[in-house]
Design a protein around this nucleic acid. Structure first.
Length: 281
DNA sequence: AAGTAGAGCAACCGCCCCACG
DNA sequence: TCGTGGGGCGGTTGCTCTACT
């Protein structure tokens, strides 16, 4: 069955909104609320479809929208959240008060992608052959490199990571930390668990610590290996950073800024999986 | 000053999810 | 249980502005 269009095309206006239309929409919603978007334009006397009204309201007219340029902090947050959530713009927007998904999406495509590209070093894609990755596995393989950046190898191969309810997700819950002897440590993340964790953390505003580039380039550039005390398990996990990184001393996830940051990544990369499969280093 | 290219951004399109009857 | 419609989301388009030649 062919679905009827969301609005009658004939006679309805498209394109940029005029100040008069904005005024009508705002005053109507302030008086009556938006209720049924499809019925709203008729009731308000607008020659627009409900979808257009909803978009205009949510992306531009809503009183709680923060206008103006994005701050460096906001941009950093977007980058971090995008690493975790992928193109789930609404989920990212939910963590940035006053910003809309559309705005974030635009900023990403116009500014941040370029910004990331500028310091994204070349990857050795041979290290991540498709054979090494279950094509149906709900995981994203991220590779730390010498600059401390990481890229989404799995996304490169299988397309973008989808949301937590995507039917493409399988029930596989394996998380792995692997390393080769040359240059990179690859951490395969179970997205299903990760998203579940993120959803659980929605209410925790302090979930994401401030991490700037110096976290990677300064703090993690002095050591060789690191021992992580697995939180709550008493189990010690040795993670080798072949880019000669992390401080030698044992880290207990509390205290210094470095340790707080590692706690964050520990939550994202390690704790998100139920199993750790640690091959020999 | 005029033409062109690129960037930025608002808005649209089409698909998907979910509530409801 | 299934069909339907509304709302939400991500991708894309196209207009406007600005910088450059």
């Amino acid at each position: 069955m062919v679905r009827a269009p969301c609005c009658e095309k004939m006679g309805l206006k498209k394109g940029p909104w005029t100040p008069e239309e904005d005024q009508i929409l705002v005053s109507y919603i302030q008086t009556n609320g938006h209720g049924n978007w499809r019925a709203l334009p008729k009731l308000a006397g607008l020659l627009r479809c409900g979808k257009s009204c909803r978009l205009r309201w949510t992306n531009y007219l809503r009183p709680d929208i923060k206008r103006g340029n994005f701050t460096r902090e906001e941009e950093d947050s977007i980058i971090q959240l995008h690493e975790m959530l992928g193109n789930r713009w609404s989920a990212i927007a939910a963590r940035l008060p006053g910003r809309t998904d559309n705005e974030i999406k635009n900023v990403w495509h116009t500014h941040l992608k370029k910004r990331l590209k500028n310091y994204q070093p070349p990857q050795n894609s041979k290290k991540h052959s498709k054979n090494n990755l279950d094509s149906k596995a709900p995981s994203t393989s991220r590779t730390f490199n010498n600059s401390g950046n990481f890229s989404n190898i799995q996304e490169d191969i299988n397309g973008p990571v989808t949301g937590p309810n995507s039917p493409q997700r399988s029930s596989s819950e394996m998380s792995t930390v692997t390393a080769d002897s040359t240059a990179m440590t690859t951490i395969t993340i179970d997205n299903q668990n990760m998203f579940k964790q993120l959803d659980e953390m929605d209410s925790c505003e302090s979930f994401i610590p401030e991490i700037d580039e110096s976290f990677w380039t300064d703090d993690l550039s002095t050591g060789d290996n690191s021992n992580f005390d697995m939180e709550g398990t008493g189990e010690e996990l040795q993670v080798q950073f072949p880019f000669s990184s992390v401080k030698q001393e044992s880290m207990d996830m509390v205290g210094t800024k470095l340790e707080d940051d590692m706690d964050f990544w520990y939550n994202v990369f390690i704790k998100s999986g139920d199993l750790l499969d640690l091959p020999e280093f």
